[in-house]
Design a protein around this nucleic acid. Structure first.
Length: 212
DNA sequence: ACCGGGATGTTCT
DNA sequence: GAACATCCCGGTG
């Protein structure tokens, strides 16, 4: 993959915006990684110094260097001692903002995804979750910093030939303990590949869940 | 379906 | 030393 425009790769300017704008715009675009690809159906925005849940909230570190770099690159990080997660760097260089890719609908290379994810039981489990999609598409620290615009390292995002989603749901983000009220998660309504159909409900004083 | 617990190690305070 | 942008498995209804 080397000829960006001819392959329909999204241009640098697409990413050079607030991640809360980019995130919903990524729904129904196609993430390509080597022989595999998937339709993006769930994303979250992380907003740098304005966002206590963002890796870049406290400034530059070794790990988050890519996120402070130019937009349109992949930021891949390791967590929980065993999982990788992939983001798309947004905004301008130095802002430290990005969009986390949380779920895909498998399109191409599905056999390869099954091989890499023996724990999956159904096709919709292959890429339903940020660490699952990285496992399925073989994204790890070796892809941190890869340029999605040139596609030179084999990863890119191309304009989907599927129409924009009919209905998009906006909720709070998943799996964080800070800024839990910010509605910076978007997913395609009704898509079975979404990792969690609902956002987690707040836990009340009784320890019980959900609605009073 | 929904829950709880364990795995596992890097990163930053 | 604590936290962690998670996942999987095995329990119970």
């Amino acid at each position: 993959m080397t000829a960006s425009a001819s392959m329909g790769l999204l241009p640098r300017e697409f990413y050079r915006r607030d991640p809360r704008e980019v995130a919903p715009g990524l729904l129904h675009q196609v993430l390509v990684a080597g022989p595999c690809s998937g339709l993006i159906v769930e994303v979250e925005a992380y907003c740098g110094s304005a966002d206590p849940a963002s890796h870049t909230f406290r400034g530059p570190t070794r790990r988050n260097a890519t996120m402070f770099g130019p937009p349109g690159h992949l930021y891949v990080y390791f967590t929980y001692g065993m999982h990788w997660c992939a983001n798309v760097v947004c905004g301008d260089e130095g802002e430290g903002v990005a969009v986390l890719l949380r779920a895909l609908r498998p399109l191409a290379g599905v056999d390869e995804m099954w091989r890499r994810r023996p724990a999956a039981r159904r096709e919709r489990d292959l890429c339903a979750g940020p660490a699952r999609l990285c496992q399925a598409l073989d994204l790890d620290g070796g892809h941190d910093g890869d340029d999605l615009v040139t596609g030179e390292e084999g990863v890119g995002i191309v304009a989907g030939d599927v129409p924009a989603p009919v209905e998009v749901v906006r909720t709070t983000r998943v799996g964080i303990s800070a800024a839990t009220d910010e509605p910076w998660r978007w997913y395609v309504a009704g898509d079975p590949n979404v990792s969690r159909p609902r956002a987690p409900q707040p836990v009340g004083p009784s320890g019980r869940r959900g609605r009073p």
